[in-house]
Nucleic acid binder design. Structure first.
Lengths: 369, 369
DNA sequence: TGCACTTTGGCAACAGCGTTGCTTAAGTGG
DNA sequence: CCACTTAAGCAACGCTGTTGCCAAAGTGCA
């Protein structure tokens, strides 16, 4: 359940869905081999009987099924339970600078289908919404027209910020002033007659990476044509009240440094991309590492994941360079185990998959934060 | 309730205490004038009847009492409810470099008594624990020996980090290696036979400031002999898994800048305090503002509060200087309303009061994060 | 092959939560 | 004085997780 803000009173209905979501989340983490009722009971702190009742409900709803038995330990063997992949689907749309990537995920988060299309933001809102709607329709078409089709929970859309994920409104699309303040979520929702959720690309990526990992905190640093971050704190994507969190590119790491396109001076993004343009990848990694170290120290992050086209152009050097800075900083602070740096897994569909996870998340108790 | 980690299953007992805590939190926010049952129902989302039952329990527990009636709006006037201040107390201890400050708070967070004592960390753990225990005993003595005395929930201790608030163990006390790894919480708890909670001074300050404000996110920047931060995200103190969050002083804002005592270069703390030492307060404020702007952008913070002896020496210039940097950054990013900067309220007892709040917080549903 | 033992997991009864429907209490206003 | 309005408790209820019990389904030794 959630924070102590307004309307956080919990009645029996809320309790039920909370516990059901908790069980679903553990089932999702368990993956195809499944998890037994007694393990669920142990991990939730609920009694085995409560878990039996909850899983019985989930089974009769078609979300969960039995999946064989485990080896006996001297008595009746435990029955494994697992998610029914086809019980729910979600579409994820990644609107990037020049192309649109779409994925269709099942309940377990596995990609069922993918699509790509060219994207021209200059064509205006109506055209883009139309294209997106057509692509979503075509993608969902693989499910046929029966129950599978109606299992689509909705569409998640991820794109570069700034935007407002609460209201689903774009604030600004650099280079295309006609998009200022466009209510993309509602426009697409009306067109598709499906729930739509809008979020920043970096947040979607972070959510995609957070799925399948328990609790923990990490930062996803995306270095492509720009530099941004997605933050996961205690297992939840941290967006801030205005979806502004993760603005990492214009962190100043060199007071009165070289000017940046944003009007500031000494921004990480400018220093980083400038170095890359000069072919000084190691220097770029060192700058990125400095920003990452600031972030890690400020938030006590467990893990740093790197991604984006620029990183992908020389992944090892970036990972090594950032790691070196973090290690040095950790050693100075007397921390025993430095924060690990890794290349973000997931490949080119990471953002689209994360966008789809925006709709799956509520099922598994990951509230929108 | 909390995150989806382990043991987050919610049974009826947990539900009851959650809703009770929610009601208590609203009663605390309402302060002396109190709040009516129907308002509580509206704000919690529970039915009036549920609130009646919950408040009846709280009244029979002695935590809540009726406090007059509101003006009628044409029918039976609503009855206001308020906390019973004396129903619970908590002691807060602030261990600073050279002195120890203690406060005794009642359930509403009001200071009932205060004490000060000299502190010599060089005297060793046993001596300090002894002094602290005596001071706590003397402070609690004002409650007499009856029910009031037994209403003391425990003792919160706040001191400079690094430390581990989960295990209540100090990691390092700069200048006094004999304190490395000292289990202060357990030592004091055994001595006092009371629950003890340990946290960083900046976190305690942030908690103290968070009490009485709803939801929201803010950063408390403390500039004294060092520079640290306390972060409150969505109404909860963000500590990180290792109580490391808020390490703000050694954020690098000038790559390869002047060396800092920590071994790094271009840390905010070194630049800031260096400027202050040179009498360049405006420059110090500008540097602090740069770090603050980084933090605000990264986390989408609503408010920045400044405190600490150095800030107190020229508060207006610091507030103005930091505000200028934040405003400029906000304007560049096209944000309509810049993040406000204010002097932290609360005075010299802020940290000690926050330390005491560490024990009151669970009653009001503010889980330890 | 049979029986004792272990372990799983459903059934039934139960306590306790918030909810609903209703009644009583305590005001206002004509 | 009485009709009306609003607050808040009482009683019955549905639903939650819990407890106690028992059938089901294995293992392992005689």
């Amino acid at each position: 359940m959630n924070r102590t803000n307004a309307g956080a009173g919990v009645n029996l209905l809320a309790l039920r869905s909370h516990n059901a979501a908790l069980v679903l989340e553990l089932l999702r983490l368990a993956g195809p081999p499944g998890i037994t009722r007694l393990e669920l009971a142990e991990r939730t702190g609920l009694t085995p009987q409560a878990v039996s009742k909850i899983t019985a409900r989930l089974r009769s709803d078609g979300l969960v099924t039995e999946a064989g038995r485990q080896a006996s330990t001297g008595g009746k063997p435990r029955t494994a339970l697992r998610l029914v992949p086809g019980a729910g689907h979600a579409v994820g749309v990644h609107l990037d600078r020049d192309e649109m990537r779409l994925v269709l995920l099942d309940l377990t988060g596995a990609a069922v289908a993918e699509r790509r299309a060219a994207l021209d933001l200059g064509a205006g809102a109506a055209a883009v919404v139309g294209t997106a709607a057509r692509e979503v329709g075509a993608l969902a078409g693989v499910l046929g027209e029966g129950a599978a089709r109606s299992s689509v929970l909705g569409v998640g859309v991820a794109m570069p910020g700034p935007l407002d994920h609460v209201h689903g409104v774009l604030q600004r699309v650099t280079g295309f002033p006609e998009w200022d303040g466009f209510p993309l979520r509602d426009a697409l929702a009306r067109r598709l007659d499906l729930p739509v959720v809008l979020d920043k690309d970096t947040n979607a990526a972070a959510l995609g990476l957070a799925v399948g990992s328990e609790g923990g905190s990490f930062a996803y640093l995306h270095l492509g044509t720009g530099l941004g971050a997605g933050l996961v704190l205690n297992g939840a994507v941290h967006r801030g009240a205005r979806t502004g969190a993760g603005e990492f590119g214009h962190q100043v790491v060199q007071l009165d440094g070289p000017p940046c396109g944003c009007g500031g001076r000494g921004c990480v993004e400018a220093l980083c991309l400038g170095a890359v343009a000069r072919g000084a990848v190691d220097e770029a990694a060192r700058v990125l590492g400095t920003g990452a170290a600031n972030l890690v120290a400020l938030l006590d992050i467990d893990l740093v994941l790197l991604g984006g086209r620029t990183v992908a152009s020389d992944p090892d050097r970036f990972v090594r360079g950032v790691g070196t800075v973090l290690d040095a900083r950790a050693r100075r602070e007397g921390v025993c185990s430095p924060v690990p740096v890794r290349l973000a897994p997931g490949g080119p569909h990471l953002v689209a998959e994360g966008a789809a996870q925006l709709l799956l998340a509520p099922l598994f108790g990951r509230a929108e934060g």
